[in-house]
Computed example of a mutant assay.
Amino acid sequence: MHLSRMAREGYGICWLPESAAQDELAAGRLVHAGGAHWCAELEIWSFKATGNSNPTMSELWRSLEKDVP
């Protein structure tokens, strides 16, 4: 079961990237828990072996490269 669905159904709270919860927040189905001190910046780094030629990995890597600022 998806975490936001579990939170909506009363199973507790969940941590989600705000971008993944935008629609739920806008519709009022989810609300932020706690104050601003509960929010955290998150930086994600991706690594892969240079010799990895798996086609699925190569496609994923190309899609990640498109989003690099």
Rank of each mutant, 00 (worst) to 15 (best):
M1E: 11
L3F: 01
S4E: 05
S4P: 05
S4Y: 06
R5I: 15
R5F: 10
M6C: 15
M6K: 14
M6Q: 15
M6P: 01
R8T: 13
R8W: 03
R8Y: 04
G10P: 01
G10Q: 10
G10V: 12
G10R: 13
G12T: 10
G12Q: 09
G12A: 08
I13A: 06
I13R: 09
C14A: 15
C14E: 03
C14K: 06
C14Y: 01
W15N: 12
L16T: 09
L16P: 00
L16N: 04
L16W: 02
L16D: 00
P17R: 14
E18W: 06
S19Q: 07
S19I: 14
S19C: 10
S19D: 09
A20F: 09
A20Q: 10
Q22R: 15
Q22A: 15
Q22H: 09
D23A: 15
D23C: 09
D23P: 03
E24T: 13
L25W: 01
L25R: 07
A26D: 05
A27S: 13
A27K: 08
A27Q: 10
A27E: 10
G28S: 08
G28C: 13
G28H: 06
R29L: 12
R29N: 12
R29A: 12
L30K: 04
V31Y: 01
V31M: 05
V31P: 03
H32D: 09
H32P: 07
H32L: 13
H32C: 12
A33F: 08
A33N: 07
G34W: 01
G34H: 02
G34S: 11
G35R: 04
A36G: 11
A36M: 09
A36F: 15
A36I: 13
A36H: 10
A36E: 13
W38D: 11
C39L: 14
C39G: 07
A40H: 14
A40D: 06
A40N: 08
E41C: 12
E41T: 11
E41L: 14
L42H: 08
L42D: 06
E43I: 10
W45D: 07
F47Q: 01
F47K: 00
F47R: 01
K48V: 03
K48I: 07
A49Y: 00
T50A: 13
G51T: 12
N52F: 01
N52H: 06
N52R: 05
N52W: 00
S53D: 14
S53C: 07
N54V: 04
N54A: 02
N54D: 12
N54G: 03
N54K: 03
P55C: 09
P55S: 09
P55K: 08
P55Q: 11
P55I: 08
T56G: 03
T56D: 06
M57T: 10
M57R: 08
S58C: 08
S58M: 08
E59W: 02
E59R: 06
L60H: 07
L60I: 06
L60V: 01
L60C: 04
L60K: 07
W61L: 00
W61D: 00
R62E: 02
R62K: 05
R62V: 08
L64I: 02
L64F: 02
L64H: 03
L64D: 00
E65Q: 04
K66P: 00
K66V: 01
D67W: 01
D67T: 13
D67Y: 02
V68N: 05
V68C: 03
V68S: 05
V68G: 04
P69D: 11
P69Y: 12
